[in-house]
Design a protein around this nucleic acid. Structure first.
Lengths: 349, 349
DNA sequence: TTGAAAGCGTTACCAC
DNA sequence: GTGGTAACGCTTTCAA
């Protein structure tokens, strides 16, 4: 008989039904008024908005999902903590997502492979889309998404099998770095790459090599930096241990984090940068700008990459039939002190 | 008339109802069977599990939340990207949460204050609890949680007004570092603190100071390191610029990231660590172990901290009436090369 | 051991 | 402009 909760009942959160009863209108009207449906008269809208404020009404995003099919959740797959770029991407994604009313649900963070139960989460929580920043481990997540109509965008990676992607023009960046080193008079090159071949690293190296080839040059040394500081450090040490005659005079590391390790390995090996060798990296992570590194690098347009990534995702949430798309954004050469000045090569006068 | 979806219809995800029809049992039976309710006969359970696998059934976590009230979501509030400790905490929380079937919904990441609309997300997505790792900005989120019966745990912070907390014993750690420096013969101390006083930093400094006081000593210098590498770097530069007579011989930075900046500031200012000065930090972030820093520090038991934090949260999800609780975990002194050896002080023989 | 049915809070479709 | 009312997918009494 009595549908209204008794006065003395435990205070529960206000719902749309609570509001509708208090306001004496239908639940549907509340729903419309609250989301600014133009069909509702300005007067009732005001009245309802006021009531909602008074009762401290908060919409239940989960219930909304159930009925509308849209969760406002983006699944985020992050790479390992050892690489600062993923932290930067996370922060960008959270901030930019919030602006669009999208929340980031962390599906995976770390170096290990994605477990099957983890990939399931994508479906269980009905994410509207998935942002993947780490290709090595992503195949599983990407496959799950693709197999279930969840749009996927890879940021900082080329899409391997399915999904859209937005990445920096890694090839062009690598070439620019080669160009710079050549202009500064370098001829003896080492590259520090990563053995588990991400699309990113491969493209950067290729770009670098092909520019060298234009001048008929090729690196004298190729070391594995493993995409970590420690890997770079080991490479730096090995280079420092070479007899001066066999030593390169410029090192290209496929990412800043490797380059930082290289520089420190060289330093602790007794060499000075750029006096003895020039070093360049790729990414322009915040740490690269520290005076102690002052690293010459190519800046990835991280903010723009995330923006375009969310654009692609948003478009595919609205229209799932859009074809996969690959976006390439140009990086920006950032010349700093880790490369010897041109003057070294062409003595004054 | 025809309740069954037409054969040719677009293939939709299997739901409990799909299964129930196919298996010829009630939806409730499916629900029970799938979660291993002992009342269901082993045989039907098997049969249903098999069917679920065949149809690729995935439970809808959101619908479950609606009816059970439990979302399996933990709201995560992260500090700024400039401090690696937050990245480490994120990775711990994601990994350990997954083990318990909890997913991390990022509420906020960064240095700025939490916006009101962001805090609302906690309620909209019906998070089961909230893990806060950054006190400066947390007040808002903590207040929203407390006001709505959502359990909160601060990790790496002392709870200011409401909520439980688990932190490292910062005071004891600070004292241990002072003890070490004194034992190594240091008497002229500088501290590099942070001007926006987090509980963490304050406790560390206090612990350090009180140990010095036991020996009737006090620091000759106190600089602001702002909790960033750059802040530490500036402090290091200032110290390096001092005339040798006014220079401290040991620096205590309230966090590793500051200490790293200090060391680089000193180095680029022409001083050597530990020859000219000893430097100690706090946290034992991964970077502190790099040979180039080889930083003496106190290791926060991050993994244990997150574990206890999730314990506290889990307990309060089950029983919301549990009182707030504060847990303090002892840190571990990690002696490395950034402090001069004892021999310096007591020449051999 | 299983079934039936009432929610959970919201949206969307169809009336009026 | 509004109201009514079925979904959405699951859990959970209460019955049988």
């Amino acid at each position: 008989m009595n549908d209204l909760p008794p006065e003395g009942a435990t205070r529960r959160r206000a719902t749309i039904v609570t509001l509708s009863r208090q306001a004496g209108v239908a639940p549907s009207t509340i729903s419309r008024a609250l989301k600014g449906d133009p069909r509702i008269s300005a007067e009732t809208r005001e009245r309802i908005a006021k009531l909602a404020r008074e009762l401290g009404y908060t919409p239940n995003a989960l219930a909304r999902t159930l009925s509308s099919g849209r969760s406002g959740l983006i699944g985020l797959v992050l790479g390992p903590a050892t690489h600062p770029i993923y932290t930067a991407l996370l922060h960008e994604a959270v901030a930019q997502g919030a602006e669009r009313g999208l929340r980031m649900l962390i599906i995976h963070a770390g170096a290990g492979p994605i477990e099957d139960t983890t990939a399931e989460v994508l479906l269980q929580y009905k994410v509207d889309g998935c942002l993947i920043t780490s290709a090595t481990l992503s195949s599983r997540a990407a496959a799950v998404c693709a197999g279930n109509g969840v749009p996927v965008v890879m940021v900082n990676r080329v899409a391997r099998e399915h999904g859209s992607a937005v990445a920096c023009d890694n090839g062009a960046g690598g070439a620019e770095l080669a160009q710079l080193l050549l202009a500064r008079g370098h001829r003896r090159f080492a590259t520090v790459i990563t053995s588990n071949p991400t699309s990113t690293a491969v493209e950067r190296e290729q770009g670098f090599l092909s520019r060298l080839e234009q001048d008929g040059l090729r690196p004298m040394l190729r070391l594995d930096g493993q995409s970590t500081y420690d890997g770079g450090y080991a490479a730096g040490q090995r280079i420092a241990a070479l007899p001066p005659g066999q030593r390169p005079d410029a090192v290209f590391a496929v990412s800043d984090i490797i380059a930082m390790g290289v520089m420190d390995g060289l330093r602790l090996g007794g060499l000075r940068v750029p006096r003895d060798l020039s070093v360049v990296g790729f990414d322009d992570i915040a740490e690269a700008a520290r005076p102690i590194y002052d690293l010459t690098t190519v800046a990835q347009p991280l903010s723009a990459m995330v923006r375009r990534g969310l654009d692609l995702l948003a478009a595919r949430m609205t229209n799932p039939d859009l074809p996969d798309e690959a976006v390439s954004l140009r990086g920006r050469l950032v010349v700093r002190g880790s490369v010897r000045p041109a003057a070294d090569n062409t003595p004054a006068g």
